[in-house]
Design a protein around this nucleic acid. Sequence first.
DNA 1: TGCTCATATGGTAAAATCACCAAATGTTCA
DNA 2: TGAACATTTGGTGATTTTACCATATGAGCA
Lengths: 106, 106
Amino acid sequence: MTPQEKALIEAKANVFKALGHPTRLWIAEQLADGERCVCEFVEKVDADFSTISKHLSVLKQAGVVVDEKRGKMVYYRLKVPCILKYMPCIEEVVQAGIQEHIDMLG
Amino acid sequence: MTPQEKALIEAKANVFKALGHPTRLWIAEQLADGERCVCEFVEKVDADFSTISKHLSVLKQAGVVVDEKRGKMVYYRLKVPCILKYMPCIEEVVQAGIQEHIDMLG
DNA sequence: TGCTCATATGGTAAAATCACCAAATGTTCA
DNA sequence: TGAACATTTGGTGATTTTACCATATGAGCA
């Protein structure tokens, strides 16, 4: 594996890792139909302002979202919306796991 | 958010998390064109047998791969191949980040 | 049965992640 | 300018992840 290949796979893994936290995944899904300000997330998740802010920073640094400050507020949106096209496949993985679990019990 | 919704998003995040490690993502990509035995991974990655085995176990428990023992060897394959279908999008995220970095320097 | 090979599991120390609190920053408005 | 607001940053302790080593399991073969 060349250093370039290694760097690429690390960057890609980093994208998955960023989405690999329930709160961050939820945030990404919230951005499906457009931008949201930070305050909207804090309102809906029962978590500290700073916690949300740090999650957003992880998503931003992974390249999943971009932010824009307008007035007092900061708005976030998906940088590369195709990310969301992934979800049906992920749900398929989850469903397969659940089905297997049911089969095992039955 | 209902308990069901919460459980679903946690399960989905877990799939992303499983892919969110360079070695595990690499393993998943290796499985693109069919099954591989554990020994093949160990050969190509410079890591301990037990390390690879544990990564495989994470992927398995997340529902990404399935294993099958045949004779002395254990073979792994992708359970839900669509996982790989969206790599171009992930690469797009990464590329966008790199481009931005270049622009910033230039 | 006993040996060897392929893989898994348990233990452990170092590093990373997470959520909260407190304090800093930067923006608007009086 | 100064108060109020939205968000970020720094610090901390608890928990999780990771990679290695040593040991266990389980299959095939002598």
